[in-house]
Design a protein around this nucleic acid. Sequence first.
DNA 1: TCTGGGGTCCTAGGACCC
DNA 2: TCTGGGGTCCTAGGACCC
Length: 424
Amino acid sequence: MIALVDCNSFYASCEQVFRPDLWNKPVVVLSNNDGCIIAANKQAKALTHIPLYEPVFKIKKVLGENGITCFSSNYTLYGDMSQRVINILRTFSPLVEVYSIDESFLDLSGVCHTTSYTDYGQEIKNTVFKHTGLPVGVGIAPTKVLAKLANRIAKKKTSETDQVYVIDSEEKRIEALKSTAIKDVWGIGRKHAKRLNAVGVVTAYHFTQLPLHWVRKQMTVVGERLWNELQGDPCIDFMTEPKPKKNIGTAKSFGKRLENISLIEEACSYYIAEVAEVLRSQKSCATYVQVFLHTNYHSKTDKQYSNSITSTLAIPTNNTFILITEAKKALHAIYKPGFRYKKVGVCLSGIVPEQYVQGNLFESQNRYNDARLVDTIDRLNSKFGKSKVMSGSIGTRIKEWELIKEERSARYTTQWHEILTIKT
DNA sequence: TCTGGGGTCCTAGGACCC
DNA sequence: TCTGGGGTCCTAGGACCC
């Protein structure tokens, strides 16, 4: 049996943990640049129909009128809280697959000797809440897709399930399938849902009644796996070791529109430094550096321009300085003056393990292999804080382009000087 | 005025090899 | 009239996830 443990309204809940005054109050969390809503807790969802991903400026009034508290996103806090939850889950099963920042699968085979699955799920839920203050839901079933389904039922029918639901019989499986709309099945997106509705498939149960060859033909092997998983046959691998990333990218909107290349160049260098650090942390090197740049798609008055370019390195590397040089060259190749730019992005790909980097007869290996400088920078930054030591290309004008986070909460759990103060 | 960011997997088709 | 058979690698595009 597999359990799926998922935190309720994760970002909003993280914020509430440290704000007892907001317990049981409506809370939403905004995207980078405070652009749109990416998380809303139960109270906020109940109050008004706040659509996720709706631009904030369109519903600012609704938020104010309903006394909804807004937070800018605080990924440092969410990342740390997530790690705490994962550490707790590891005490409940030796095999944990961290699926996302707020969801993990637990392999429960051979784990529940003395208790029922329901009791075990309750124990997981209660322990996570006691140790972190975060509410979670638990779904338990023979396959991942069914565990997802069970988790959904646990959260929807809280009064009956108390946030834990187990699919452990044929009757319960059929019942779960019949009560779940096909569009809500994990792996069925908007497109497939539409096509399935068109042929009369409305629930997950209908889907399992389709002939497998039809599913295979219309939805490839992905659909076939889903079909089998819903029947109770596990086909999706359990991954306890995270696979090294194949692409590492970052792209963030500027706090304001930029026209001049010099600030864009500094932002681009900063992003490269960020992704290069991730690359080194997984002990890989990248072969390609992609840079892209665009204006504000939504603007009706601005002249529009976007472009992207990928450059190939002579030798794959994870050296920040080489990557920055390459990215700056690429940026100059696509930059055109006279536009109001909104975003620059970088993406590293062609990722290979550090120890298998292919050399090049015509390039000096030393320049690429000398890791002493970047290693030292990584060590300094991990000891003294992010971006304490940076490449000169990044400059000192970060405030002029970085994204806006007006309502960011404190980094309660990772910065000594932002730790929660309690007055008694 | 203001509209997020970071990923994965699969397939078809082109280009190439012997 | 009739033109083989067995492969690999790469890329773009589509679909999905949180």
